[in-house]
Amino acid sequence: MRSLQELLAEHPFFAGLDEDTVGMLVGCARNVHYRPGEYLFRQGDPADRFFVVRRGRVALDVHGPGRTEMVVDTVDEGGVVGWSWLVPPYRWFFDARATQEVSAVAVDASCLRDKCDQDPALGYALMQRVAGVMYQRLQSARIRLLDLYGTDRAG
């Protein structure tokens, strides 16, 4: 059985963090597992943690009255789910649903924010990583807005 320290250290999201820093994060983390169809969180719930996906696939669903529920993104092994814990009002904007057996490390948001407040270097290192994830998701969403696979050519 691998320790939380090892699991976090080998996850791409934490690549480059030294052993002591990862050790600080371990205090805020715990292992979690979800079966297919189970929700990691639901839209509107308090965003009190984020998830480092070790195995499986998580779908981010959006729903609204009168509209069919849709998957707008998926996160696989090596990815991270959730950044609403960083931004007030700290509420989830989407549902996160396991589509396969999911093993993840859940990191407590309040605990982590406290550590970041005490150690700005840690806060900066984490913000760089979260910003990287947000940048990729934003680019992905923007490029998909182009409806790439539609046709712009008649013939």
Binding site: R57, A59, E69, V71, Q139
Partner: peptide
């Protein structure tokens, strides 16, 4: 795929991923 119904078990996102 760019977007999917919740019955889709596969990936959703951009091909660059």
């Amino acid at each position: 795929v760019d977007r999917a119904a919740t019955s889709w078990p596969g990936r959703v996102g951009l091909v660059t991923e």
